Simulated scan of single mutants.
Amino acid sequence: MSAVDAMIDTGQDVGPLLCCITHRMLLIPVESGTAGLWGAAHSACSSGSALQCVMHGYQPPCRNRFWVAPPGPLAAPTSAPAVLHETLSLMRARMRFARRPLSARAREVCHV
């Protein structure tokens, strides 16, 4: 969700968002033909029009799903895959940095 918030904050179009509570996933439709180019960490992309959770191994079926932003007049038709990929990567880098112990972060210095 933080990546979606960042996209909205920078004026990027965000398409429909379907949340699956069972698998703790957010399903975001992207432009047709881009599944093969996808490679953002903590995400997966599958081709086709069905909004299904992409899982490895046996997983229970999706039971608890709801629209965070339903398809319709308020959402864009899809989220731009390149922008979504970049934003997810930036958010992942921030989360990785935030999880490191303070002692490891204190050794880094930024000069502006």
Rank of each mutant, 00 (worst) to 15 (best):
Y58R: 13
C110S: 11
M1F: 09
P71H: 10
S32W: 04
A50G: 02
V112T: 02
L102V: 07
Q52R: 15
A41I: 03
M91F: 00
C20N: 11
R24I: 01
R24T: 00
S2A: 15
A104Q: 15
A93P: 00
G39P: 02
P81V: 04
L27N: 03
W67Q: 04
G36H: 09
M91T: 04
C45K: 09
A82D: 11
L18P: 00
R63I: 02
G36N: 09
Y58Q: 07
D9V: 01
Q52V: 06
T87D: 02
S89Q: 11
L26S: 02
P77K: 15
R92C: 06
V54E: 03
L51C: 04
G11V: 04
C20G: 02
A76K: 14
R65V: 07
C62P: 00
P16Q: 11
V68G: 00
E86G: 05
W67Y: 08
T22N: 08
M25W: 07
A69N: 06
T78L: 13
R92K: 12
A6Q: 12
T87N: 05
E86M: 13
A35N: 07
D9W: 09
A75M: 15
V54Q: 08
C53G: 02
H56D: 07
V68E: 06
I21T: 02
A82F: 11
T22G: 03
A80K: 14
R63A: 08
H85A: 10
C45Q: 05
G48Y: 03
M55Q: 08
V112F: 14
P73T: 07
M25H: 11
P71L: 15
E86N: 08
S32D: 12
R94L: 11
G15N: 09
H42Q: 14
G57N: 06
S49E: 13
A93Y: 03
A82Q: 11
A104F: 08
R63W: 02
P73M: 15
S43N: 05
L74E: 09
Q52S: 11
A35V: 03
P60I: 09
A35T: 01
S43Y: 06
C19H: 15
A106S: 13
A41D: 12
Q59M: 10
A76W: 07
D9G: 07
L17C: 05
L90V: 00
E31I: 01
E86C: 09
C62G: 03
V83I: 11
A44V: 00
R105L: 14
T22V: 03
E31F: 02
E31T: 01
A80S: 12
P61D: 05
V112N: 08
N64K: 14
L88S: 04
G72D: 06
H23R: 10
L90A: 10
D5V: 04
W67D: 00
P71M: 14
L102W: 06
S79V: 04
S79D: 04
M95W: 13
C53M: 10
C20Y: 04
W38M: 08
A106K: 15
I8D: 02
T10C: 12
V83M: 13
E31Y: 02
G36P: 01
N64A: 14
R107S: 08
A50E: 11
F97D: 04
A6G: 05
A41E: 13
S89D: 08
R92I: 07
L88E: 05
G36E: 10
S43W: 06
P29R: 13
R92V: 05
Q12Y: 12
L90D: 03
M25C: 08
S89F: 03
R107L: 15
L74D: 08
G15C: 11
